[in-house]
């Protein structure tokens, strides 16, 4: 059997579209008839699905260029890995998932890439429609470069594309409140609705956690795993939620904010800080980052900061 190493034989995401539609309608019906927890606000849903549709169009605009660069790199591959070898699929499964973990972590912890990824977190709801609230600017942000080492090693582009699609489809179904928890062994190995609810939460204790794609083991290995605590329900969205449902604001607000900050920059250090510092970075530390928000939360938990004292120190603007 031969498989084209360049053009993917199938697109897992395209094949999953009917499943997306059926399961979203199913989740709404479960919520409507109180069979499971599911909350849908119409305009929020429209925004999520509109972003998903827009991301398809954005992908068409940048896809050809990304594909071209990928093919160019593939010419210089170190090995030629066969698409028909089972070991190769096992290897690409783990390596792609590891790549995804670092892509995702970078997308949260560095503002330039956060600007592209933030839109996925702007819904204050957590349902299957939220999963489709996808980026329009990922191609421009260049995070796809992180997958090029796999190509350089010799994994065929089609193989990587298929595995990326499988990962995306896997991550779709975990965007739900309808499922509480899986058996302990499954929660220990795989990314699940419970783990990913934490990832979408804006509670300080849950910030910057659970970056996994398919396997949660990476978060456990690299120290970013936080379990869902039933005593503190997840509040979804970003630290500073968006002011309306305008999909262009969803797609571009952080880029605009970066532009405003860069326009007011007074040194190279400030330019780099605003671009590549953590979201919320500011030269004088007057804004909050995830780290400062967590520190304040810990201080409150410890009872070390009284509201009156904290009021004097809380800055005017905070991180996303």
């Amino acid at each position: 059997m031969t498989l084209d190493p360049i053009k993917a034989a199938f697109d897992p995401v395209a094949l999953a579209v009917p499943i997306f539609v059926i399961t979203i309608i199913g989740e709404i019906l479960l919520g409507r008839f109180r069979k499971a927890k599911a909350v849908y606000e119409v305009r929020d849903t429209a925004t999520s699905l509109g972003m998903g549709l827009g991301s398809q169009i954005a992908g068409l605009l940048t896809g050809a260029a990304i594909f071209g660069v990928t093919l160019w790199v593939y010419q210089y591959r170190l090995f030629t890995i066969p698409m028909t070898a089972i070991w190769a699929w096992v290897a690409v499964f783990f390596l792609e998932d590891l790549t995804y973990y670092w892509f995702h972590r970078l997308s949260h912890e560095r503002r330039f890439w956060w600007a592209s990824h933030v839109n996925h977190h702007t819904s204050q709801h957590y349902n299957l429609a939220t999963a489709l609230r996808q980026t329009w600017t990922g191609g421009i942000a260049g995070t796809w470069l992180l997958w090029l080492p796999l190509i350089l090693v010799g994994f065929p582009p089609a193989m990587v594309v298929i595995q990326k699609g499988i990962s995306l489809v896997y991550q779709y179904w975990i965007h739900t409140e309808a499922i509480r928890r899986f058996p302990r062994w499954f929660e220990a190995v795989f990314n699940t609705p419970s783990h990913h609810r934490v990832h979408h939460a804006r509670n300080p204790r849950y910030l910057d956690a659970n970056y996994a794609g398919i396997l949660i083991i990476w978060d456990r290995m690299f120290g970013t795993w936080i379990p869902e605590d039933d005593a503190e329900p997840c509040r979804y969205g970003v630290v500073h939620n968006l002011g309306d449902f305008n999909i262009f604001r969803v797609a571009f607000h952080e880029w605009i904010a970066i532009g405003k900050d860069l326009a007011g920059s007074r040194s190279i250090r400030e330019v780099f800080g605003y671009l590549f510092g953590p979201p919320g970075w500011s030269p004088d530390g007057s804004r909050d980052t995830s780290a400062t928000l967590k520190a304040k939360w810990r201080a409150r938990e410890a009872g070390a900061v009284s509201p009156a004292t904290a009021a004097e120190t809380v800055p005017l603007q905070a991180a996303e």
Binding site: V17, I25, A38, Y40, V42
Partner: peptide
């Protein structure tokens, strides 16, 4: 078209907070 259908179902369900 599918997006419009899903939005329509969400509007019908009235399951916002």
């Amino acid at each position: 078209m599918l997006v419009a259908v899903m939005i329509g179902v969400a509007a019908w369900a009235r399951i916002a907070r």
